[in-house]
Amino acid sequence: MAEIIFRSKMDAKRFYDHLLKCFRGNPSNQDILLLEDRYIVKVLDRKVNLEKVKLAFYEFIVKIKRDDWFRAILQDQYFFEDSEEQQHIMEIIYSVLEGQREDLSVLIKENGEEPNIREAVEEIFQDNVSFSFDSFLKFRLRPYLKVLESYVEISIDEYKMEQEYQMFIQTLRDFLTGREPKMDTLHLLFDEEITFFDEKFEEIKRGELMRMIDRKLLFNHPVYVDSASIAPLLSIAPKSILLYTKNPEEPLVRTIRNIFEERVLVKSFKGLRPTKEWIQQENNANENGA
Rank of each mutant, 00 (worst) to 15 (best):
A2R: 09
A2E: 12
I5L: 04
F6R: 11
F6C: 05
S8L: 03
D11V: 09
R14L: 06
R14H: 06
F15I: 13
K21C: 04
F23V: 14
D31P: 08
E36A: 05
E36L: 02
V41T: 08
K42L: 04
D45L: 01
E59Q: 12
F60A: 01
F60C: 01
D67C: 01
D68P: 01
R71K: 12
I73Y: 07
D76A: 06
Q77Y: 08
Y78V: 12
Y78K: 11
E85D: 15
Q87K: 15
I92C: 03
L97N: 13
E102V: 15
S105Y: 09
V106S: 11
L107S: 06
K109P: 00
G112R: 04
N116Y: 00
I117G: 02
A120L: 07
D127G: 00
S132A: 07
S132L: 05
F139N: 11
V147M: 06
S150E: 14
E153Q: 13
I156N: 00
I156P: 01
I156L: 03
Y159F: 13
E162M: 12
Y165W: 08
M167W: 05
Q170K: 12
T171W: 00
D174C: 01
T177A: 02
G178Y: 02
K182M: 07
K182H: 10
T185V: 14
H187Y: 08
L188R: 12
T195N: 05
F197A: 11
D198L: 10
E199W: 03
E202Q: 11
E203N: 07
E203K: 14
I204D: 06
G207A: 05
D214V: 14
L217M: 09
A228L: 11
P238M: 06
L242R: 15
L242N: 15
L242A: 10
Y244H: 11
K246V: 13
L252A: 03
R254M: 03
I256M: 00
I259P: 01
I259L: 01
E261H: 02
E262H: 05
K267F: 01
K267W: 00
K270F: 01
G271D: 13
E277S: 07
W278T: 15
I279H: 00
Q281L: 08
E282F: 00
N284L: 10
N284C: 03
